[in-house]
Design a protein around this nucleic acid. Sequence first.
RNA 1: UGGGGAGUCGCCAAGUGGUAAGGCAACGGGUUUUGAUCCCGUCAUUCGCAGGUUCGAUCCCUGCCUCCUCAGCCA
Length: 561
Amino acid sequence: MSSLQSPADSTAPVSNFIRSIIDADLASGRHDSIVTRFPPEPNGYLHVGHAKSICLNFGLAQDYHGKCNLRFDDTNPEKESEEYAQSIQDDVRWLGFQWEGQIHWASDYFDALYAFAEELIGKGLAYVDDLTPEQMREYRGTLTQPGRNSPNRERSVVENLDLFRRMKAGEFADGARVLRAKIDMASPNINLRDPAIYRIRRAHHIRTGDKWCIYPMYDYTHCISDALEGITHSICTLEFEDHRPLYDWVLDNLNVPCHPRQYEFSRLELQYTLTSKRKLLQLVNEKKVTGWDDPRMPTIQGMRRRGYTPEGIREFARRIGVSKGENNVDMVVMEGAIREHLEAIAPRVAAVINPLKVTLTNFDGAGAREADFHPQHPEFGKRIVPISRELYIEADDFAEVPPAGWRRLTLGGEIRLRHSYVMRCDEAVKDAAGNVIELKCSLDHATLGKNPEGRKVRGVIHFLAAEFALPAEIRLYDRLFTVASPDADKEVDFCTYLNPESLQVVQGWVEAAVKDAPPETHYQFERLGYFVTDRRDHQLGDRLVFNRTVTLKDSWTKEQA
RNA sequence: UGGGGAGUCGCCAAGUGGUAAGGCAACGGGUUUUGAUCCCGUCAUUCGCAGGUUCGAUCCCUGCCUCCUCAGCCA
């Protein structure tokens, strides 16, 4: 299967404004090669928005034969954990990317960061402030009013240095003092109104343990980390756009090896889901989903368990592009990209989700037939499609009173049993309430592997020979929310839009060919959709559990509506 | 109503002084033992609005409108 050319990866890169900047930098000789980085904070699981960023940063490095670092932004020990850091590494690798050399951590630079802070103090560009958080907020001003200088702003270099060293030494209580950059309290850009760059926090850090009781802030840490790693293009999302002057201010005022440039692109909004870490965490904590890897979650772990493939997700990223405009992407774009890859790699197999029993009244003499696992790929192999006196067909494939355009089974009508005989329905057996509970049908014995003579049979339905079918748990997933933008209205709790039908578990039947499939095996259940054996609960040869990844395109249902 | 951004087909998105790429979706048609796939075709006289410069503007200038974003000792 490795010889297969994946359509997802065979397409040329799509032009975007960041590539234009890189092209210009390379052409002008500003850079000989590029270095990017993917800088997650290990405080949660990665989601589809991160997938976009991963594809961008690692993809750029790949296309331009440059490098991409994985760097953990671990400057807030209270929220970070080893578990998150581990899952992030797994996710990046699973998506098909490999970072350059060792993993980097912002905490690797804590000593350097501290020294740079003393450099700033020495230059009179940073000072220790004793204001409380509330006071700082008051002094900061508002969007339309300038801030006021802190009474501590004019402390001497000597005093600041002494105070900062004592902060580091643990002489002050948590939150008692901060180190602030001395920029401009009247700046129209609030990020420049003397931002805090160090705070006192006695928290156990996942890598440095209890070595530090002061921790650097993001804005101060990120730009220096970039510079120390020789990053050429530091790519982040739009909300950091007005932090860029601060990014540049820090690097302009410190003796750093280089000055990377920051560029911002718009973050992904995927309809019918959420990409807020806080809200995803809430779904997990409140047990609205079974965990971070619930197949309904837009996390990479969730998408993986759902049956999305790295190739499909990468193709999705390629299709949505990179820009600074609104990026409100319809779920069908993701589904289309996933289908495209699954269409190419998934063996076809039969499964019945909602069984209706069929008894063949003229079964004697009927035989099995071999069928390809994939109509376009004979190299996928074949298996026997058996038949037995009793069959299961999909209840939806029979209608006593068929609507116009119906091509499936109806009383007195004929259909082709996929990979088997043409079958006519002779009688519908009903229960006391009038529900059809069984069909009596007959085979045209002359139609195995050939068309009947003198008439055309248009409809094809799938079926399972009851004697050989395997029972399976089938989990039918649908979108998590009932509205496109569940968090659009700040007055309404997004949980009110949770889709009560986002998961439906049914006991169905699958053909015996899937019996020994390991977890994470993709199949197309013909006429139903793409399914994957569950990563966690599927046990080969024993308990079969399938997750519906995505349905097939369905022009019939659309026509009905 | 301070700062920073963005407005090109239903959604995403190239183009940027020479007369609107592409993808997704949609819609027609063909093939088909999956109403799938595949194939073929259709789909912006127009680039938020109004003026101006120019032989010529989506692209340059002016004004306006709409949307996003920023007041953590989070990232």
